[in-house]
Design a protein around this nucleic acid. Structure first.
Lengths: 123, 123, 123, 123
DNA sequence: GTGGTCTAGACCACA
DNA sequence: GTGGTCTAGACCACT
């Protein structure tokens, strides 16, 4: 899995990392149970400080996206129960509003959403 | 139009304000050409610093959601922005990923998106 | 409120701080709505690094014990809804087991628990 | 006696093992004098490294919960430790604080403590 | 070798 | 002035 960071972005690095991993899981680039790189390995290869990587991992863990086994290593959670976050729906509402204002029809928006959802099917 | 702020949120206040106005426009609570309260009035009634309100207005102006008329009043733009922001699509992808992981089917997601889009029709 | 740290303890400093604040709230030394010292002030007066204090505050925030208002400052939450944590009950079970093995009768244990609970009443 | 481990927990495995044995003793699932499995056997059946099991046994020995007999076997001590650990009381205070903040009345807390204590009576 | 903790000092966004 | 982010480098507990 390839990671990209925008060091000029206002979005903090640890969130950029977290988001890429979430998307990776949803789109099948990361499978449940698959091992993730160690904190230090990921830090080295991406040029990010290990504390920053650690912060992202801790957030993902807290959100039940990943699990770290005490016997070593971190992996994508096999169980991702998790209720739908109200903030996610709220954010969705905002972004759909932005698309609507920019002139997209309901069909266009739904097509876009369908396309985005399906990225996870063609893995 | 009623404004609500979460002072404990991670989202900055000026963005919360900006987002509510964008949603308001998309969902028809604010009509093109409609006048917005002055910075001062909005600041007073919502308990937010006027610098913060001003920042939100400036952002909205820059994004072409609102315009300042000759006499200094502010109103919803009649010409809405036409370009779709790449960041919006990226954010949409993230949030759809989150919904997918939490177990929602494609149909569920599309229903939700349709519902969110339609909020602007029933004003 | 007086804070004490055991720099030799195996319990991490940020947890020691978190625990003292939780106990302080329960025992009435900190009232709902009361302002907490700033991260830096607390760091200075206790000789702990500010990142460590920040970590404690973030944990307390996540647990809904405290709230930070975007307009500045952090305060004890006035609403502490929060469900009872299963881990708390589990830990309680362990500690009561330890007391039982060391020979304390049920009455002694309940007296101790009652005494500990009541510390919050005599503020 | 059934052992369960949470490999994703923040509590180290050797402590999880130690805690389960302490609770087992208090609640009568393990009787004074009863033999414990060998380090190796316990390690194999639970998927834990034998160094980790050994560490737990050493800790329990040091706390006088278990003893090693002449031939190297390990058994639950018949002489139980008599001193109440100050840390136990401190931990109890913390957990009772957490329960109190989450809205439990003194009666609720004492009922819970009584119930937890009594688990050892109904074996 | 793994993640977790801590420090000292710096910079930035927000209000 | 507030909290949030990030770095570089160190030490430690656990397995």
């Amino acid at each position: 899995m390839i990671l990209k960071f925008d060091f000029a972005s206002k979005v903090p690095l640890y969130l950029q990392l977290r988001n890429q991993i979430v998307i990776g899981i949803a789109e099948g680039k990361l499978s449940p149970g698959e091992k993730l790189p160690t904190v230090r390995a990921l830090a080295d290869e991406s040029g990010i400080n290990s504390m920053t990587v650690s912060k992202a991992y801790q957030l993902l863990k807290q959100e039940n996206y990943i699990v770290t086994d005490r016997r070593g290593g971190t992996a994508v959670a096999s169980q991702t129960p998790e209720k739908v976050d109200a903030r996610t729906v709220h954010a969705l509402r905002l972004h759909i509003s932005e698309l609507r204002i920019s002139g997209m029809s309901k069909e266009d928006v739904l097509d876009l959403c369908a396309k985005l959802y399906e990225e996870g099917d063609q893995k």
